[in-house]
């Protein structure tokens, strides 16, 4: 009887702790999102989108930072997504069981969670230092390098979901391998491929560390890819650590914008891939 009681008590304690852990974890995360929405919405106004970053003490917005983020993310995705997709195609289609594929899979998984600041250092060494100055294009390249592992991973996973019988049917009709992949596998996995790109955009749109010493920052409007360019995360970093109240407010608003963007992209990506799997 007493053994039975002890076991039951231990179980109640353990399950209670698990409930507690879930409540504890979720409440922290809700707290973060809550204060983000509260602080960020206070500063949200049309001028955020129509004016450039101000000097301390005057009114301004985040227009140049938003534009810079968009431009560098787009170029980064344009560099990284095709590369990741082609490499993912190799892993899933041509070289599925080869040694090269095994090694690439392993290395890619490591690059997926490698510290992004190191990628920034790499781009600084190979691009910023030879060019002699910081530039938007090197920032975009750093982001592109972070896009590759995400897209590669999803592309491979999604192509593997395409039933082999579909490929066999196409091959039996006489279609060469490239056509089987291009016309059959890609089409069947289209939603999944889009998911990969969306997830990659979500991943890089909040990246700060690799931009700090590649694209640097820019207080003014700039569309020159060969010059430093502002981006939302770097502006948030600079403004949040400043002693000026209005800069800190803009940092909160920028943080809210990034979070909303990232969450929206992830939800859309999820909807895409859910439609595919069912």
């Amino acid at each position: 009887m007493s053994l039975y009681d002890t076991r039951r008590r231990t179980n109640t304690l353990a399950t209670g702790l698990a409930w507690g852990a879930a409540l504890f974890g979720l409440s922290w995360l809700l707290l973060i999102l809550g204060s983000l929405a509260y602080e960020g919405l206070r500063g949200l106004s049309p001028s955020v989108f129509t004016q450039t970053t101000p000097p301390p003490g005057s009114v301004g917005g985040l227009m140049n930072a938003i534009a810079g983020s968009l431009v560098m993310t787009m170029i980064g995705v344009a560099i990284g997504a095709p590369l990741g997709m082609l490499a993912g195609t190799y892993l899933a289609e041509y070289g599925r069981y080869t040694k090269l594929a095994t090694v690439v899979r392993f290395i890619n998984d490591i690059l997926l969670s490698a510290p992004s600041i190191v990628i920034g250092l790499f781009v600084y060494e190979v691009m910023v230092r030879p060019m002699g100055h910081f530039s938007a294009i090197s920032g975009a390249l750093a982001l592109g390098l972070l896009v590759v592992p995400v897209v590669l991973r999803t592309t491979e996973d999604m192509l593997l979901l395409v039933p082999a019988s579909m490929r066999e049917a196409a091959s039996a009709l006489g279609a060469p391998r490239a056509m089987v992949i291009g016309q059959i596998a890609y089409r069947a996995a289209r939603a999944g491929l889009v998911t990969g790109v969306l997830l990659a955009i979500a991943r890089v749109s909040g990246e700060t560390a690799p931009l700090l010493f590649t694209a640097l920052n820019n207080q003014f409007w700039s569309s020159d890819l060969n010059a430093p360019m502002a981006s939302l995360p770097v502006v948030i970093f600079q403004f949040a650590l400043s002693p000026y109240k209005d800069w800190q407010q803009l940092a909160w608003t920028g943080a809210l914008l990034i979070t909303v963007t990232v969450l929206t992209l992830s939800i859309i990506a999820r909807a895409f891939s859910a439609g595919r799997r069912n």
Partner: peptide, 19 residues
Amino acid sequence: AIELLAGIPSIIYGIWGLF
């Protein structure tokens, strides 16, 4: 929800941590 939260950029945690 937990998977979505894993995707929130780290700078958000940073600014929340500071203020």
